[in-house]
């Protein structure tokens, strides 16, 4: 298994998440989709940190991923709160179709 295939898998996750984000109406699925995309990007970062052969992997992308996870956690928390508020307000956890008139 080369690191390159991990990176490809990361890209795959990104695309999969993007697809889910667009087609699913339920907000929880959208939020999950965003998280999966985030995981995909992390995978790409980690996988590409390994630069050929036996050399030690570059530590910087790992640091980035950890930072990214922190950001993702807070973003997800905010998204969940918003979703709950919206659901309480409208009775459904989807985005209303109509623009405000």
């Amino acid at each position: 298994m080369s690191s390159f295939s991990f990176a490809l898998a990361g890209i795959g996750l990104f695309v999969l998440g993007l697809h889910a984000l667009i087609v699913h109406a339920h907000l929880l699925r959208k939020i999950l989709a965003i998280n999966i995309m985030g995981s995909g990007v992390s995978l790409v970062l980690v996988a590409l940190a390994r630069r050929g052969g036996d050399a030690l992997p570059d530590a910087v992308p790992h640091a980035m991923v950890i930072t990214g996870i922190v950001v993702a956690v807070s973003a997800t928390a905010l998204a969940l709160v918003l979703m709950l508020k919206l659901a309480a307000e409208t009775g459904s956890a989807t985005l209303p179709d109509d623009s405000p008139e």
């Binding site: 907000l27 965003i34 973003a75 905010l78 998204a79 918003l82 919206l86 307000e89 985005l95």
Partner: peptide
């Protein structure tokens, strides 16, 4: 709330 949610998804993406 709907506007903010839409905005959040767009900005995260």
């Amino acid at each position: 709330l709907a506007g903010a949610m839409r905005y959040l998804l767009a900005t995260l993406l």
